[in-house]
Design a protein around this nucleic acid. Structure first.
Lengths: 129, 129, 129, 129
DNA sequence: GTGGTCTAGACCACA
DNA sequence: GTGGTCTAGACCACA
């Protein structure tokens, strides 16, 4: 269920954070579901437990999960909360990148074409006439 | 002309690389123009010469600049070469972000609205009817 | 295992790069083997860690090694990849030198004799009739 | 008559040294011929006079030229002396490169094929049957 | 003057 | 522990 790329530039603990969020967004983890224990996940992924611990701490800090002493970590955010905040972040990235592209004199249409392309690739043709 | 954010997560030497590229793209630096010397730029930006040196070495490795022994560093890439390659990179970023947004069930129109917004902010209203 | 000549015209960091490549080519380092850590090698060779770091960065840039965050540097290239590319480079050197020798009116046979000589010295007589 | 590559890794003064030697070897400069004056050559090549001066000093140090106070620099070596010593140096390079190639398990025949190739390219086919 | 290499030593994020 | 970045300061070859 967790996909980690050891060679990626993105720190492993961030990848774990993203993985958990995606599992929530995809519906695999629901509110109040328990996350795998630090030790178990560490063993499963062959990753240092400190790294898992750090990821869980970060998730808790962001309010995505909560922990009960001696019991473990549990999903706190609802699917919708998370989906909304993540979406806003990504739209912000789009915005910033567009500003740069405009400075490079890239015509707006090229970007829009790219967006269409992504939506076609990702989902199959979504326009049927 | 150079803007460095000491607090940024992005290494200073990378920021310098980006600055030089941007100066070329904006037309402030033209092919065969001489860059400020390592020492001069270091003093101007209150940054260690080694860090500038590293940035210049990276620029040369990428073919953006070339250096003449004992003479200095000079712009090698043409504005258009650079603009093209940078644009492709950014469009790629757009593509990847769109894939993620689609997974979050973000409607395509929200993205396109964001793109339009960026183009209006950046340039003033460019479409009046 | 590492041989560094402090007096050589070739920069130390390049010598380290060459050393690592040779260890791979000779089979002493295999794919996914861990390289000595920056600090350890620095101490062993009585060389500044920054210089080792630079060599390792270059090796990674060339795709010969890869590094895992917080874990270390590892061999990425296979023996054969490296042997092939290095061989091509050296054959190219031979070609260029021959062009110069021809301009000096050196008869081709003198070169071929030299080649034979090198192969006899390096390996013991390899042709007995 | 002089070909200088400002961007080459080889220092300009070495390139000038090589140029003079080649002019002697090709017969364009004969024993006791006068070399162009430092100032004249510097102007012709748009190169710092110090650099020419350094090249001429090196040529004199190697015994290739001699200088007369207030008169200039003159060719000292005969064509044959020079051709012989340069040839020996290049053959030595071939030898060393072959040792390396042998370590990489490159078959001797690949080298010899390369030598033949260089002699064909450089001079037109030299074997007619 | 120019860029390039190196040492010494610090601090950082990450595992 | 690991690699990566940065400062400070020296020295080099080269033009």
């Amino acid at each position: 269920m967790f996909l980690i790329d050891q060679r990626s530039r993105k720190p492993i603990y961030e990848q774990i954070v993203d993985n958990v969020k995606n599992l929530i967004i995809s519906g695999s983890l629901k509110r109040n579901d328990q996350l795998p224990s630090v030790r178990q996940l560490a063993q499963e992924l062959s990753i240092n437990p400190n790294t898992i611990q750090r990821a869980y701490a970060e998730l808790e800090r962001e309010g995505v999960t909560y922990s009960l002493k001696g019991r473990g970590s549990f999903v706190g955010s609802s699917l919708n909360d998370l989906r909304t905040s993540e979406t806003e972040e990504l739209l912000d990235d789009i915005f910033k990148t567009c500003i740069s592209l405009q400075k490079m004199l890239c015509p707006k249409d090229r970007i829009i074409k790219k967006v269409e392309e992504a939506y076609n690739v990702g989902e199959g043709v979504d326009k049927r006439d």
